[in-house]
Design a protein around this nucleic acid. Structure first.
Lengths: 232, 232
DNA sequence: CGTGCAGTTGACGACACTCAACCCTGGTGG
DNA sequence: CCACCAGGGTTGAGTGTCGTCAACTGCACG
C-alpha cells in the first residue's frame, strides 16, 4: 500500500468539494485530519480487514471501495459500495475498542484518507454539526439497506433493478451511468444470489438494450423499463 | 392512544436503569426529556407511521415494538425488534425534515416515552457522550442487520436459528428466553420468507424439544443444537 | 503460452413458495 | 348458550424459481 504523507494539504482541498465538508475552513480541516495519511490503493487491495481492531477510519477521495463481510461458508457478502465523499467506519469509532465490522477493498485504483481514531474522539466529536452530517450518511446507508431487505421476497430481476437504480441515484453524474465499476460477481454478492442468476438477467437486459456494460461500467439506457421490474 | 403527562417523573427514574442513561442525574434527564409524553400502547397499536414527518423519537420503557416497512406488494418487512432501553428514530432527527423510515407498532401492551425532535437538536446534541451511546446502539443494530444479510444464501433453518440466537443474546434475562412475544408470521416477515416455511422448521424443533413456545413466548432449550444449524 | 479473471450457457434438481384445507382458542353478539 | 369470527398455528400436494455443476469463450498479463 502506498502511503503519501506530503500530499495531505492538497487532499484537504479536495475534501471541500464534498457535501459533508462544505463551508469548512482549511484550518479546521487541518485539525480534523491531523496525522492522517493518504492511501493510494490498487484494484482489489484490502485496506481494513473484518474483525481487526480499528484505529483509523477513512474518507474516500477517489475511486470506489466495497465493504463486505465473509459468510460462514467463506463467501463474501457485500454490504455497501462507497464512492468519493463517503466516510468509512467513522461511527464505530464511538465504541471503546472498535473492530472493523466489514472488510474494505478497493474497486479499481482508488484513494483514501485514513484518519486516526483519536481525531474522532477529540476533534470530530466536538463538532456536533459534523456528527449530524455523519449520522445522515449512516441514515441513508441504512435506508438503502432496508429498501433491499424489503425486496428479499421479490424475484431476482426486481432486486437487480433496485440495486442498479440505487447506485445510479447516488451517482454524482446526472446521467444514468454508475460511477462504480461493478462485476456480475459483485452484484451477486451484494444481493446474496449466484453469479449465474445475475448473468442470466443482465445479459438479457443488455441484448434488449436496457443497459450497457463495457469494462464493468454500467449505463442504464431505459430507467423506466427497469422501474417496471421493481413491482414484483 | 393513552397519553399521560403526569407520570413523566417516574418514567425518568426508569430511564436510569437502562445502560444508556446510567450515571445521568435526574436533573439532566429532565432537561433531555422536557415536554415528553408517555404513550401507553395496546397490542398492535401503531405509534409512528412509515413515511410520515417525524417530530418525535421514542425511548422504549416497557413491552416491545416492531419496526417494519411495507413492501411493494403490500406485505410487511420487519427491520428490527425493540425492547426496553432501545431508542427509536433518534438518529434520523439529525435530518432537516426527517420522515419515519419505519412503521413502529406495539407487540403486546407496551410503553414508550416520546421525546420532541427539538430536544434532540438542542440538548441531546450538546452531550457528545450521549450521542456516542446512540451511535453505539445504531452500530449494534447495523451489525445485526449485516449478520442477517450475510446469511441470505443459507437455508431457512440457519436463518431462523440466527434470528432466535440474536434475540436471546440481547435479552436482559440471563436465560435463553426471548423477552419479546413473537408469532411465526413476525419471524417470517423479519426474514423475508413465508410463514409456512417458518412453521415447518419450528414445529419440528418444538417436537424434538429444541425450543419451547407457549403464548408466543419462545425459550431456547438447546442452544448448542441451534448453533449447529448456523453452519449452512 | 499458461494462468487467472470475467462472462456465458445448458441440464438437472431441490428448496422454498403457492394454494388450499384444517384445528384450536378466545372474544363477541344474538 | 351457542354461533360466528378472527388470529394463530399446522399440514399436504403441486409448482417453479433459483442454485449447483460443468463446460466453454475471450481477454489481459507476465
Amino acid at each position: 500500500m502506498s502511503v503519501n504523507k506530503n500530499a495531505l494539504s492538497s487532499a484537504l482541498i479536495e475534501l471541500l468539494s464534498f457535501p459533508i465538508f462544505k463551508e469548512f475552513s482549511l484550518e479546521k480541516l487541518e485539525i480534523l485530519c491531523a496525522n492522517s495519511e493518504i492511501f493510494i490503493c490498487k484494484h482489489r487491495q484490502v485496506i481494513f480487514e473484518y474483525g481487526e481492531p480499528a484505529f483509523k477510519f477513512g474518507i474516500v477521495l477517489g475511486g470506489a471501495f466495497k465493504l463486505s463481510r465473509p459468510t460462514i461458508t467463506g463467501e463474501d457478502s457485500i454490504m455497501h459500495f462507497s464512492s468519493p465523499g463517503d466516510i468509512i467506519g467513522a461511527f464505530i469509532m464511538a465504541q471503546p475498542q472498535p473492530k472493523y465490522p466489514v472488510t474494505t477493498a478497493a474497486m479499481g485504483p482508488s484513494r483514501l484518507l485514513a484518519v486516526p481514531k483519536e481525531n474522532y474522539i477529540q476533534s470530530w466529536k466536538k463538532d456536533s454539526d459534523l456528527i449530524f452530517k455523519i449520522q445522515n450518511l449512516i441514515s441513508s446507508r441504512m435506508s438503502q439497506f432496508q429498501a433491499q431487505k424489503a425486496m428479499q421476497k421479490s424475484p431476482i430481476p426486481a432486486r437487480i433493478a433496485e440495486l442498479l437504480l440505487q447506485l445510479s441515484n447516488r451517482s454524482s453524474s446526472h446521467e444514468y451511468k454508475l460511477d462504480i465499476p461493478l462485476t456480475r460477481k459483485e452484484i451477486a454478492d451484494s444481493l446474496g444470489v449466484t453469479i449465474e442468476s445475475v448473468i442470466r438477467v443482465m445479459s438479457e437486459w443488455s441484448k434488449s438494450g436496457l443497459i450497457d456494460t463495457t469494462e464493468q461500467m454500467i449505463t442504464i439506457n431505459k430507467p423506466e423499463k427497469l422501474i417496471e421490474f421493481l413491482k414484483s
